[in-house]
C-alpha cells in the first residue's frame, strides 16, 4: 500500500505541475516574443506562477518518499 500511496502522491503532483508549468512557460514565451518591451512584467508573472505551482509537487514528492521509505 505504501508503494501505491507514494505513486499516487508523486504521479498526481507531477501531472498537475506539468500541465500548469507548461501553460505558464508557453504563454510567457509567446507573450515575450510578441511584445519584447513587456519582458520584465511577464518575467515577474511567470516567476510568481511557477513558484506557486511547484510548491505542491515538491511537497508531494517528499511525502511520497517518506511513505515509501517509512514502510
Amino acid at each position: 500500500m505504501s508503494v501505491l500511496a507514494a505513486a499516487i502522491a508523486v504521479g498526481l503532483g507531477a501531472i498537475g505541475a506539468g500541465i500548469g508549468n507548461g501553460m505558464i512557460v508557453s504563454k510567457t514565451v509567446e507573450g515575450i516574443a510578441r511584445q519584447p518591451e513587456q519582458k520584465a512584467a511577464l518575467q515577474t508573472t511567470m516567476f510568481i506562477g511557477a513558484g506557486i505551482v511547484e510548491v505542491v509537487p515538491i511537497v508531494g514528492v517528499v511525502i511520497g518518499f517518506l511513505a515509501f521509505f517509512s514502510a
Binding site: N21, V25, V29, I32, A33, A50
Partner: peptide
Amino acid sequence: LQRRVVMSTESAVQQEGTRTRRKGL
C-alpha cells in the same frame, strides 16, 4: 527559480543563431 526564469525568457528574445537552448526551470 528567479535565475532560471530570467535565463529561459532571455533565450526567447535572442536571435535565431545566437540562441542558447534552455530546457526546463
